[in-house]
Write a protein that binds this DNA or RNA. Structure first.
Lengths: 217, 217
DNA sequence: TAAGTAAAAAATATATGATATTATTGATTT
DNA sequence: AAATCAATAATATCATATATTTTTTACTTA
């Protein structure tokens, strides 16, 4: 029962999305089909499908008759994204804390453990694992809200998270101890089933990250 | 300076989306490329681009190697959608009431006027204008939150609104006087710059609609 | 008969080439 | 420098072709 190999379409989608999030494809740059064809070794049909999907997700801007561009960035857009992330993730966290069972707690603890290990490493100056660290960050935040009991909410949140992530990657700098403390605060409050404290830590966490990123832009 | 004719792609997108929202394409049904080709007179490539976009928006479910389906409906999904609409629209309404200028007020009043005219008509038993009525409903709700000052929020909201709309169309019945009163309440509170009352009316409005639809399902 | 399996048919995923339309560029003129 | 127009490039769309995968049908065997 091996997982079937991903189709050209879905793997191209992931690759382009990743390249946009991690800045390999610069904000605002033109996405010429001919270039992409070489770069991702896929046909025009496949690429157009992919770009249309990414456009719907907001990573690509499609201009009728003029083709596709990497969605540009701006401070205002970042502020909007951060604010939406707060709105969605706070809400999901509250629901999750109210609904989560022991299984959920276990997953949260596990996710935090992995993230924390990585944070210690990064604070020691090791920056080789940026991507792993970001993945663990995502997994921790996701684990916290996973018991919110709304697929639609989780799906919306993950889209916003990815957009937020792009801005973080754009000006990459590690917030270190502060961010780690906020994560710890969220963990403790979640396990203590204290939604007010947990959401307070979350809100600070996102807003501090926002300030940090805005300053670096 | 005439608006340029829409491309085959975008008009196909709108048509299929509309057919899903208004139930012409039944929930869960298979979307065979060959059939769609005839029905919308577009090529497979164009259709696949369209379906991929709709999949990203959640109106179509794409199953790898097995093609596309109209996203199924369920009571739980509807509850999630309604809850998200409350979350997003409440938030946007608060921001909008805080930011809106006189221009905004004018647009809100105008949108409500048109909606109200239609509501009177519907209460008199005329059901021929369902689609116009629904458009005016959308325009009124949009006008209220338009001053929220966040493109991202508006865009998220419009996607959720459309999903909610599909459920309403699915079991179409007019809530009549009650809904009209809630609209009036929102209008008055918005003009009075009373966010608490306005969001209360909004929340009731959506939740009553939800109950109404759930009962009819 | 039920269950399983192999062959056939249908549908999808992907690629390519062709055409019409639209944008962009560069040269030319005013 | 601005405006114009031809030449070039790029996109949007479609029709076809092929490989793969699903689904259906027919057939076999327990």
């Amino acid at each position: 029962m091996a997982k079937q190999p991903p189709t050209v379409g879905s793997s191209t989608f992931e690759r382009i999305k990743r390249d946009i999030i991690f800045g390999t494809l610069a904000p605002g740059s033109k996405l010429k089909l001919d270039d992409l064809k070489k770069r991702y070794s896929a046909s025009v049909s496949t690429l157009r499908e992919t770009l249309n999907r990414l456009a719907s997700d907001g990573f690509v801007a499609a201009q009728e008759q003029r083709g596709f561009f990497v969605t540009p960035v701006s401070k205002d857009d970042l502020r909007e994204i951060a604010s939406l992330r707060v709105l969605l993730e706070r809400h999901a966290l509250r629901l999750s804390i109210a609904n989560g069972d022991t299984e959920w707690e276990g997953n949260v603890v596990a996710a935090h453990h992995k993230l924390h290990r990585m944070e210690v490493l990064m604070q020691a100056g090791d920056e080789t694992e940026k991507e792993t660290w970001k993945r663990y960050d995502w997994e921790f935040h996701l684990s916290l809200i996973r018991a919110c009991n709304s697929q639609n909410l989780l799906s919306l949140h993950s889209k916003i998270y990815d957009k937020y992530l792009r801005y973080q990657m754009l000006v990459f700098t590690f917030r270190g101890e502060a961010a780690a403390a906020e994560h710890q605060g969220m963990l403790d409050a979640a396990l203590a089933r204290d939604p007010d404290t947990a959401t307070k830590f979350l809100e600070d966490h996102i807003n501090n990250g926002l300030t940090h990123t805005l300053e670096a832009m």
